[in-house]
Amino acid sequence: MDVLVCIKRVPLSGGKFTITEDGLDIETAKLGFTISPHEEVAVEEAVRIVEQHGGSVTVLTLGPAEAEEQIREQMAIGADRGILIETDSQEWDPQATATAIAEAITEDETDFDLVIMGNESADASGYQVGIRVAHKLGRPIVTGVKAMTVEADKATFERPVKTGRELYEVSLPAVVTVLDGLNIPRYPSVPGRIRAKKKPIERRNPERPESRLVKTRLEVPVTESKQAQVLGSGPEAAPAIVEIFKQIGVI
């Protein structure tokens, strides 16, 4: 079973975002980087599938050269190899991203049985790259999955809905997008980190196609300028809190 997981390097925001002067990006000079929780569980699931069935886990990302850091982190969890589709500093829109990912998958020497992605990226949250990739590959796709069982040639996916759960059964190869909560990802081990340094990463440099969804400005929503009124310190403040409970009618 050969599994490919797509991840995306995104800033690790603390409490609040600051926007760059040109109004187009998040100020990342003081921020670390990570991947979405959806993608963390995607990699963990891929590693578990390969532990059970044998095979390989490949991690793919489209991003700047620095995204090697995110690939290596997932290699420390258990991914075997990486594909880095290197971009300039510009953001690629969902269509351009999906095209580049589908090309990389098609041209790879491995025929992947399963492609796993996050349901939506943490930053752009476009809810479409997985579906567009599946269309380009001509494979079935199930999205928003929170439980799965993978067998040799088919998979069962479970998706939460308001009324309970929906079940989908598809034959492999297939594409699936997953949600945080699918599993609890493991932490990388020290030997895992050491092995990760030596694993192969293949780099690709396609040209960026013209964007058709073009970001013109980013802003922090204005409603966020609250500042908590401090009612006190320690247990002595409890009566003041209970007064608030009364005011808002919860007791």
Partner: peptide, 11 residues
């Protein structure tokens, strides 16, 4: 989180 809250107790 203080920047999103209405009231706070430090402790």
């Amino acid at each position: 989180i203080m920047g999103y809250a209405d009231y706070a107790i430090i402790g």
